[in-house]
């Protein structure tokens, strides 16, 4: 079955032809040119494909593209209209990635966390990012970066 799916992608309305069995991840990457979400495992385990749908982090590798009809989809590309975000800057400063493959997913998950809880504890950070896998960093620098964001937000009274 074919569908015309209309949704908001990174703030702009888009319209795309898809079949029922097409994955959101493939449609974003191959049909809409949004390549920050990555194909890591394809079964929901690694978080490399994470995007926000109506503000919640979702695994686009196990989401049908037809499911986003009428929704707001945000990928990393949509966060940095005004340059890197506070989270991205903290990632850069702390060397929170090496190959970088996991980074877009981490930043999306971290963005959702900080929206809900601007100054999380380290335990809360680890719990929230537990579903994002990184094969390079050993996670320490990622957690350091997030601790820094949390501390900054606390100082700013968020």
């Amino acid at each position: 079955m074919n569908h015309t799916v209309k949704f908001n992608l990174n703030g702009s309305p888009v319209e795309v032809q898809v079949k029922s069995n097409e994955k959101l991840l493939d449609v974003l990457r191959d049909k809409l040119g949004v390549t920050s979400p990555k194909f890591g495992c394809g079964v929901g385990e690694c978080g490399a494909c994470t995007v926000l749908i109506d503000g919640l982090s979702v695994r686009s590798c196990i989401t049908f593209a037809v499911e986003v009809e009428g929704k707001n989809v945000v990928s990393l590309e949509g966060l940095q209209a005004d340059g890197p975000t506070k989270i991205q800057k903290a990632f850069i400063k702390n060397n929170a990635f090496q190959c970088g493959f996991c980074a877009p997913g981490f930043v999306m998950s971290a963005t959702e966390l900080i929206e809900k809880n601007p100054s999380p504890t380290e335990e809360e950070i680890r719990h929230a990012l537990a579903g994002n896998l990184c094969r390079c960093t050993g996670y320490k620098n990622i957690v350091d970066a997030m601790n820094e964001v949390s501390q900054e937000n606390k100082e700013e009274g968020r």
Binding site: G44, G47, T50, L56, S57, V58, R59, T63, S109, E112, L113, A128, A130, G131, N132
Partner: peptide, 9 residues
Amino acid sequence: VASVGVRNT
């Protein structure tokens, strides 16, 4: 259960 990204849906 799983991770935030799975629990959200």
